Every structure is written in structure tokens, then in C-alpha cells.
Simulated assay, not measured.
Amino acid sequence: MKTLIINAQPDFLNDTHFSVRLQQLFLKQFSERFPNEAPAILNLYDHEIPRIETEQLLAVWNKQQAGDELTVDEAKIAETSNQLLSQFKAHHRIVIVSPLHNFNVTSRMKDYIDNILIARETFKYTETGSVGLMTDDYKVLLLQASGSIYTNQDRYTPLEFSRFYLEKMFVEMMGFDSFDIVRAEGTNVLSADAVWQSVPQQMKLAFSQFYGE
């Protein structure tokens, strides 16, 4: 099963982060389940991800729509964006590794989504609304670490915009079959052991669903 891990942790080389530990746990289970395979790993903060700015994606899209020739720099931006999109579409299992930043996804993750949420590629517009095109057994799993706890049905629960945003974009907009989440939460209020206590079981259940076991 072709799997793409999208690591949106800015400090992705620091294995003290719970989000990085979540990725390591996933990789351990993956190697046990698929000993002859290896997932592709894209560390977003180790790459230049094109952004929606006047001198980047906006310039590229406007010129492409007008049929104008791109500059050398714009052509490189277009090529990078196309490569990200092609890589994304080629993997039917998407794993997002991320901390929760101010209740939402990291800035580089948002930039990445701007390169893959493309009309006529991953969704299309119709007279009755948009329709997802990623409907051929695509699934997404979010591995998220957060300083607070968002599952207590209190004031923090509706502020977990990251989960809601990603689920809506992947399932409702792009047509993914499923969205699941494994949380390491309360990293700023609980001990490390308490944070990790439920994680292995969460991962085991999510992994089984992710690969249809």
C-alpha cells in the first residue's frame, strides 16, 4: 500500500516532540505489517513549498490562465507545485504528522494544501456544488500532538480547528473515504507517561482501520 507521510512539524528532527514520537510509532507498526515496503516521507519544513503570494502561486496561476509565458523562477514554482500534487495523488494512504499551532495546522501545512487542493485535479466544481475526485480508496490519518486536551467536551473542544479543517478538506472536498486521528494531547499539562498512556492502543486501532485489517 503506497503511503505518504507528510510531516508538518517545524522541528521535525527533534525526537523529543510528541508528534515526532507518533511518527516513530506509526513507522514501527508499518515495518511490522509491511516488512518489504517503506512509506515516502515529506518533511514540509525541509522543502520550499510554494505559497499563495503575488510573486509565487498567484503569478503562476494568473499567467497560466492568460496563456502567458512564465519566468524561470515562476516555472520552477510551477514545477514544484506539480510535483507535490503528483506525489500526493500517487499515494492512497496519507499520514499527516503535526503539532497543534494556535488551534490549527502549521503554516507550512496550509501552504501544502494550497498546492494539492486544485480544481479538476483533486476536486471539481459542478452546478450543485463541488465534488471530490479522490474517491479510489484514499484514506488520511492525522497524528497530532497538542499542549492542551481537546477531547473533554469543554471550551477547548470546539477550538480544535486543525482536525475539523483537515477532515473537511480531505473528506468533503477531495472525497477521501475516511479520516482518523491519533492524539498525544495535554503535553503542557500532563506528565509524559500520562500523555502517552493511551497512544499505543489508539495507534493500533487506527492502523487497522487505515489499512483495512
Rank of each mutant, 00 (worst) to 15 (best):
S148P: 05
D111V: 00
L42P: 14
D154P: 14
D11L: 11
E185D: 06
T126R: 01
H17M: 08
E160D: 10
P39K: 08
R93F: 05
P99R: 02
R33F: 14
A40C: 10
Q209L: 07
F164K: 12
D15K: 08
I116P: 10
A38V: 09
D15C: 00
V195W: 09
D137S: 04
I52N: 13
Y156C: 08
F161I: 05
L141V: 06
F179S: 10
Q24Y: 00
D11S: 12
L143F: 11
E55Y: 08
K139L: 04
I118V: 15
G132V: 02
V195Q: 05
W61I: 01
N115R: 09
E32I: 00
I181N: 15
S107F: 01
T151G: 02
E121G: 03
D11I: 04
I96P: 09
S191D: 12
K76Q: 08
I77Y: 11
A40P: 08
S208F: 02
M174I: 04
R33L: 03
D180Y: 10
G175H: 12
V140P: 09
A90T: 04
A8L: 07
M109I: 02
Q201G: 06
K110R: 12
A145W: 05
A78M: 01
Q64H: 03
T187W: 11
T71D: 07
Q83I: 00
N7Y: 06
Y211L: 02
K204M: 13
L100V: 00
Y112S: 05
Q29G: 14
